[in-house]
Nucleic acid binder design. Sequence first.
DNA 1: CGGCGTATTGACGCACCTCAAGGTAAGTGG
DNA 2: CCACTTACCTTGAGGTGCGTCAATACGCCG
Lengths: 260, 260
Amino acid sequence: MPKRVLPNNANKDFIKNIFLFSGLTDAEKETLCADGVLYSYLKKEILYRQTDPVTHFYVICKGAVHLFQEAADGSLVTEHLRVAGDTINSTPAFLPGSKVHHVNAVAATDSLILDFPISWLKNAVQNYSVVALNLLCSLSQRAYNMELEARNQSRMSSQQLLACFLTRTCVIEGHDQRGFTLPYSKSIVASRLRMMQETLSRTIPKLEECGISVENKHVKIYDLPKLEQNLCSHCPGAQKCYARSTLQKDAGNIKELKAA
Amino acid sequence: MPKRVLPNNANKDFIKNIFLFSGLTDAEKETLCADGVLYSYLKKEILYRQTDPVTHFYVICKGAVHLFQEAADGSLVTEHLRVAGDTINSTPAFLPGSKVHHVNAVAATDSLILDFPISWLKNAVQNYSVVALNLLCSLSQRAYNMELEARNQSRMSSQQLLACFLTRTCVIEGHDQRGFTLPYSKSIVASRLRMMQETLSRTIPKLEECGISVENKHVKIYDLPKLEQNLCSHCPGAQKCYARSTLQKDAGNIKELKAA
DNA sequence: CGGCGTATTGACGCACCTCAAGGTAAGTGG
DNA sequence: CCACTTACCTTGAGGTGCGTCAATACGCCG
């Protein structure tokens, strides 16, 4: 079971920096957080299960959460990998009708998560228009990323998908590109990228062409020019140019790496 | 150029029934709509182009709009097909930074579209918390559909994708399942389903197995039990069950067809 | 050590993409 | 009304990336 974490100076900063609250005064933040409880989840601990009723809204302060569907035969399909700063259950909160989880949520790494009752979110949105705008902003961002992802999914090779995933992970989670440890198992990565584990295994050696090396869970991004170039090639025929255009965002990530 | 349509009794109903406004009084709706202008777009008329700055927020009252990316080599990739009731540009309105369209928007059929200045939306959300909730609801719905779509995309065969698309189109656009005319060109459909036109052509005859016939643009959904059965099979191996679970929504559409 | 979950490797097949060549429908100008 | 153009769609032959199935190897813990 997750352990409740008492507020202290160290974790108070998490609350102050939650994007949803940006633009509020510290006093307002504290009022809003009165209904929130901070929990520490160990890796593999369950937030909720598929078909459970939706009861909470979560803000990930540290760590990562794996959202996935489980089929009758036991096969798993990743829906999202949410990381620090992301929210969970912001969308079901606003949908009409029976609110039941359609995915499982499990801590992918040891995590610090702020839990609110699900009704809290709707109230916060109604009472603070800044919160409404912030939430709309993060949902818009998420929608944009999903569109990009959908395009990449259908136009890019497994190499490119993996290369993009690794560079994005490196940027988002603030790792050092010269060498960092991937916090997820390879099966999660494969599922996240909608490819088979076997395909992922076979893809990893090919990443050397892109200037990325992966050994066990240790990732090195050692040749950015090569990476940049390979992300935009390897697309057969007419799709080449298309893929390039969708890669603008990923190119942005590469730039971030360069700047660092 | 789109023609401005003057408010009259016929199109006043469109404004009253906009989902974004549900929960408001008629007077409030009219106040909000003061900044809106109703336009009639002919098929193929352009709402905006890729890389244009974002200037307007749109509500589709009638018809459909095709959102697509155009690559340097001229190849097109569909991002969305929005239909009556949908909004356009609700997400860019809340994103920070330079606001530039990353897709083209073109009327896919003759359409009636309500245009607002882009700043209008943010104001409406700030001034009316009901509008904020409504918008969050429709964005949540859209996010849910995109997740579903992403799953289907990677797990379903082209037959299933096409069958799902046709049944959904039939339901969403309120056609008669016994026979209706698809309002889109086949190239749009193919692009929407992220498959090649050739693949779509070859897939159409196979739809007879699912109880659907397509000739030119005329679609008949004539065997619902067969359809239901075929949507859940044809998935190789372990993915079978997975696909079934994602098909709940489509199964819902089939039920709607049955009820009609 | 043995058991278990995770990861790799190989052989094989198929669905879909690619390239290329008609074919059909709709609009245009004489 | 008929030639002509253009856009859209269909059909064929061939290639390939990735899924499938199955066997093996690795790392971890009791």
